[in-house]
Amino acid sequence: MNAHPPLFEVRDLRVAFGRNGVFAEAVRGISLHVDHGEVLGIVGESGSGKSVGMLAALGLQPEGARVSGSVRFKGRELVGLPRRALRELRGSRIAMIFQDPLSSLNPVMTVGDQIAEAVRLHNPDLSRRAALDRAKDLLALVAIPQPDRRLQQYPHEFSGGMRQRVMIAMAVANDPDLLIADEPTTALDVTVQAQIMEVLAELQARLKLGLVLITHDLGVLAGHADRVAVVYAGQVVEQAGVDDLFARPGHPYTRGLIASIPDMTAQSERLFSIDGTPPALGRLPAGCPFNPRCVAAQDICRREAPPLHRKGDHAAACHFAFSATESAA
């Protein structure tokens, strides 16, 4: 249907970790795509495989992990690409930012040097001076005051929010097409979270970035994502446009996530939470992986893993995905 291939397309991505020759899959066939200038939210609990999957897509999986499936960037296959070719893409066409900006920055290098390094790695002919000038502009771009002075400082001299701005500046240093932000606000104070999201949203619009926003907090995605993929136990269990997802969630896990967003206007005292914990690596229950925690689980859920049911652009991996809404309609 599309003349152009999507900016970033992941198909049946699997990542397995081995111990003593026995491999267990942390990512069990994730498929998703991001178009130019589109914001895709990926939501799931910690350990669901959302971060590992995205890292592996760029060849940054932990040592000893086994990666299979297909990852295409502008139509070019990344899985199995030589390390050198991947390196040329990373930081130039595809950038990443991480959860904890303090541990993500090198403590013994000045902020200016770290940003300039990102610039020069992909523009080797640029002088150090010119790269530092570019770094200064980048700091100004993410609204860090006094960029001249800040360049010469070390990460520990920055506040948490300012550090994350530095990470963002570093990520967009080479005008990438795709930015993968892995829990960019999780380690920050609540008041700062909103500011960082604003910076990200503004840059995304200005630079026409494809943005993958990984989070465990569905609430963060409400105002920022175009589409959302819900990941559970290493699989995408639901995928839909953001409004559609919030209005008509097709998977009970998504309904649980929506219900656990704190509601400032509600009078209820207790916060909703989904009972139980996600399955441990390599210890999946029979049938639907969510069935032990599901309030609506039937016999079939304990026997058969549900296929992905589709309804337009909305997909959900639940035996009863669209039956409830349809009967209600």
Partner: peptide, 14 residues
Amino acid sequence: SREFILTARAKGAG
């Protein structure tokens, strides 16, 4: 094993 090593690799450093 620290995270800034991952950042360096994500930047495209060899």
